[in-house]
Design a protein around this nucleic acid. Sequence first.
DNA 1: AGTGCAGGCCAC
DNA 2: AAACGTGGCCTGCACT
Length: 374
Amino acid sequence: MAGLEADIIELAGEPFNVGSPKQLGEILFDRLAVPGGEKGKTGAYATGADILEDITTLEDSHPKGARLAALVLDWRQIAKLKSTYTDALQDHINPETGRVHTSYSIAGANTGRLASTDPNLQNIPVRSDEGRRIREAFVAPPGRVLVSLDYSQIELRILAHIAEIPALVQAFRDGIDIHAMTASEMFGVPVEGMDPGIRRQAKAINFGVIYGISGFGLARNLRIPRAEAQGFIDRYFERFPGIREYMSETVKTAQEKGYVQTLFGRKIHTPDISAKGPGAGFAKRAAINAPIQGTAADVIRRAMIRMPDAIAGLDARMLLQVHDELLFEVAEDQAEDLTARARQVMEAAASPVVDLKVPLVVDAGKGENWAKAH
DNA sequence: AGTGCAGGCCAC
DNA sequence: AAACGTGGCCTGCACT
């Protein structure tokens, strides 16, 4: 990392704090005259990863800026992993147990999700190769393995149920690739042999819908013109009109009652729903998302409550909950038994209070460390 | 030295 | 006017 830092300063041509977005912004946009610099409310240039990634494409017009941006992106990834995980997690090892123990807030999130602190074990890296090396440090003791079980697409399944989208419900019942199906419906192309790029766009739209999508947000996410993104959303609503209905009904309920509810009847209050100005959009999207995210939180909590009885007699412990995943430690020769029991509990967790029109499906994995189990 | 915010980034 | 939901933790920086 020190070498990387030296390379960055040499390229910049002047000493500066690589960890300072403000200083980096001034070098890129003022001194190197990279175009597109935008200052936020504090007067500092924004230098987030998406902006730096755009700058790396300017190799022809601004070679120095492009290379500087690329190096800083590398540095930030390593610095993040080291400070937040490699270094910090070791300070959290309990001397008596030799393990890292987190704390859960039972009412951590407004939607009913748990929150994990000191340390947060719900945001251990997994998406990048480098990040997964952090996850490999979470290991089972000798003779034991880690088993991870996670709900597949639980929020989209809940959306399909709540908004009553026949095509989505049927696809989940048939076990079809849901993003490919969405792309097929929207763009009129067959699922077989689908262009991965088309599927990726449909996936972004499916996620966006759960979060209360906007044309602007989707455009930024997919890096496409806003008009094109809005066209995608319009077509999505045409194909799945129940979604638009769900969104407007949910906002209306929030405005009339001051809360929305999960499928299990738990209330989530929406005090900001009638805010004016910039906050209005935020409050509406939060209200749209809350019943979906909150129902998923209810489902996994019900599974967790039933878990001690379900795994009684096994040499196994439930270790962590990560929103749609439960992580267990179990004697090696009992991993299969545990997986079957835990999966049964998780897949049936909505029952008997809620009769979902879609199946809940749980994926499972095991290994000597969390990366392999996941 | 402690506090709080902003920017940034990790997860689901 | 801002711009995709829910969180927590890190560093830098301004301030007391």
